[in-house]
Simulated scan of single mutants.
Amino acid sequence: MPLQRDDEQRPRTRRQTEMDAARHRLEEEDQDSMGATAAAEAPTGPSSEINLAAVLAAMQASMEAARREQEAARREQEAARREQEANQRQLQDLIAANQEEARRDQEAKQNLILEKIDHGLVTLGEKVKNLTLEVKEVSARTDSLEMRFDDMNQKIVKLQAREPVAVGSSSHTHCTSAAKFDVPRFDGTSSWTAFKYQFETLVKTNRWDDEQSFAALTLALRGDALLVLENLPSDGRTLERLMEGLDTRYGDKHLEHVFRAQLRERIQKPNESLQQCRG
Rank of each mutant, 00 (worst) to 15 (best):
Q212C: 05
Q212D: 11
Q212M: 08
S213E: 07
S213H: 07
S213G: 10
A215S: 02
A215F: 04
A216M: 08
A216Q: 00
L217A: 01
T218Y: 15
L219T: 08
L219G: 07
A220Q: 05
A220L: 06
A220C: 06
R222I: 02
R222N: 00
G223Q: 06
G223D: 04
D224H: 12
D224R: 15
A225N: 04
A225S: 02
L226I: 07
V228M: 13
L229T: 01
L229W: 10
L229S: 07
E230W: 11
E230L: 14
N231P: 00
L232H: 03
L232S: 01
P233C: 04
S234N: 10
D235H: 09
D235V: 05
D235R: 07
D235A: 08
G236K: 15
G236D: 14
R237D: 05
T238G: 01
T238E: 01
L239D: 02
E240M: 11
E240N: 13
E240R: 13
R241M: 14
M243C: 13
G245Q: 05
G245L: 06
D247M: 04
T248W: 14
R249T: 11
R249H: 11
R249V: 03
R249Y: 08
Y250K: 00
K253F: 11
H254G: 09
H254R: 15
E256T: 11
E256G: 11
E256L: 14
E256V: 09
H257W: 09
H257R: 14
H257P: 00
V258E: 04
F259P: 03
F259R: 15
A261T: 13
